[in-house]
Design a protein around this nucleic acid. Structure first.
Length: 263
DNA sequence: ATGGTCGAAGATCGA
């Protein structure tokens, strides 16, 4: 089984890239962020033609998350306790073959973590509070669903290996110690950064700014993560970042990250 | 050096 996460930065604009990548990569489950699409405008028919069911929690212009899968996702959560938030950033679902043992299903939480704009900004305070509330939600999810995947655009570089120039970037937004502590509090629940189970080195990024020819110069960050619970660690086979769609014409600024599981 | 480039808007804001 292959699972993946991709911030598409407008599903409307990126739909051709999405369908191309689905055909190329053949993921079983894909979490999307920044769909920027009202639910009524979600392209269900186009995705069904590509062989995927989809669930979504969208809004106009900003944010928006979706989960695509070969089997219908069920038991959705779009709003979490203690976080009355109109911004559509959270979508949890259970995915498994209908005929299979329910214990074999995967629980997927798709997150579009708050960007935060700048350290000290009011959006930064919202980010830290949001992370703390989401951590509490994930603790409950993990208790109920050992086969838990938490993936999405985390808008946080886990450590300096995930930054093209950690000295220049310093402790700015996406790398500040409080954000990293917020992410660590989540991984300390027992969730592993799956990419790091396979690749310890630096220079592997999932996002490159549109400006300054950042992609060509590999001036990027690794902020798109697939976290897995302990129960899935032993079946993780390979993790990768697929840079190919970032090379296509009019790309998202993010590229898909993937994880293959022996299940 | 606070620039630059996208997307959704239809002026700027968010990233």
């Amino acid at each position: 089984m292959k699972i993946a996460s991709w911030n598409v930065n407008s599903l409307k604009v990126r739909l051709p890239h999405l369908t191309q990548w689905l055909a190329d990569a053949q993921p079983d489950i894909l979490a999307l962020q920044e769909t920027k699409l009202e639910d009524a405008k979600f392209p269900l028919d186009e995705l069904a033609a590509a062989g995927y069911r989809a669930v979504y929690s969208g809004q106009k212009t900003y944010n928006g998350v979706a989960i695509l899968a070969r089997h219908q996702p069920i038991d959705l959560v779009t709003d979490i306790p203690g976080l009355a938030d109109p911004q559509r950033r959270v979508l949890a679902a259970t995915i498994g073959a209908p005929e299979a043992d329910p214990a074999q299903a995967l629980r997927v939480v798709n997150l579009y973590v708050v960007n935060g704009k700048a350290v000290g900004d009011e959006k930064y305070a919202y980010k830290l509070d949001w992370l703390a509330k989401v951590r509490e939600f994930l603790a409950g999810e993990l208790a109920r669903h050992p086969r838990l995947v938490v993936m999405g655009d985390f808008n946080i570089c886990p450590d300096d290996r995930d930054v093209y120039d950690p000295v220049a970037w310093g402790e700015d937004i996406l790398c500040s110690p409080p954000e990293r502590a917020g992410l660590k509090a989540i991984t300390d629940l027992g969730l592993h950064d799956s990419f790091r189970l396979f690749e310890p080195g630096n220079g592997h990024f999932s996002w490159w700014d549109y400006r300054q020819a950042a992609f060509r110069r590999n001036m990027g960050l690794r902020i798109d993560l697939i976290l897995i619970g302990e129960a899935l660690k032993s079946v993780a086979r390979a993790a990768a970042i697929d840079r190919e769609p970032r090379r296509w014409e009019r790309p998202s600024d993010h590229t898909p990250v993937t994880l293959e599981l022996d299940i």
